[in-house]
């Protein structure tokens, strides 16, 4: 564990808590894309399939449970909570998740780290699911970014949520650089490239977020 990874995990945790705070306290999910939340639930479900088989540390298991629990409860709130669901603007959230999930699944089947396991079936399945979750996480924010461009006035909590979500992966990139130089054989092109793509997708959001912060004006993305 290094400071970059810890900072990344804490930023990721904070993004989830900001979103839960918004939904739970003001009972509103205005401006939040349900599609992105559902994609994130799929990302965590496919990423942490081995949560009970491969134990790494109490921290690791606890964080996995938090991410799984929070992502699924956010989806539950937005779909079924009688007050929250009213503030969900489905006409603005029209991105079709399957056009993201299918290519990621095919890509995961084609390009995944060579597996050195004996029983090809289970471990291969787990590896493909893990790789799928990496590719899917890289693009999961797209429905949310599209929705932000359509929603004229982005409220602060939503802006902070997206900013923290982007920042966490940027911190992970620093973590990978650090681990590359401090650990031998730490080379994971798939993780690195998907993490880079993911962070680059936030580039224009970061730009406008920084501008709104610097000029102290409301955050607005150009249509």
């Amino acid at each position: 564990m290094n400071i970059f990874r810890l900072a990344g995990d804490m930023t990721h945790l904070l993004s989830v808590l900001v979103l839960l705070l918004k939904i739970h306290t003001i009972k509103s999910c205005a401006g939040i894309s349900l599609k992105t939340q559902e994609l994130y639930a799929v990302v965590f479900a496919t990423r942490y399939l081995d949560i009970f088989t491969s134990y790494i540390s109490p921290y690791n298991t606890m964080m996995k449970l938090i991410f799984l629990g929070s992502s699924f409860s956010i989806v539950w709130y937005m779909r079924y909570h009688k007050i929250v669901r009213r503030s969900y603007d489905k006409d603005q959230d029209t991105f079709r998740p399957y056009i993201l999930m299918l290519p990621c699944l095919i890509l995961a089947l084609l390009i995944n780290e060579k597996f050195t396991f004996k029983e090809i079936s289970t471990s291969f399945f787990l590896f493909v699911m893990w790789t799928f979750s990496l590719y899917l996480e890289a693009v999961a924010i797209l429905p949310q970014l599209v929705m932000l461009q359509r929603t004229r006035n982005i409220d602060n909590l939503t802006g902070q949520y997206v900013f923290l979500l982007g920042a966490y992966r940027a911190l992970y990139i620093l973590n990978w650089i650090y681990r590359y130089f401090t650990e031998e054989h730490f080379v994971h092109w798939i993780t690195w490239i998907s993490g880079l793509v993911q962070t680059l997708l936030y580039a224009d959001f970061f730009y406008y977020y920084f501008q709104s912060w610097k000029n102290n004006v409301k955050l607005q993305l150009p249509a």
């Binding site: 990874r5 081995d50 491969s54 790494i56 690791n60 973590n175």
Partner: peptide
Amino acid sequence: VKQESAKDEL
């Protein structure tokens, strides 16, 4: 089994 080093991350 040696944990896949990238898989020790979240």
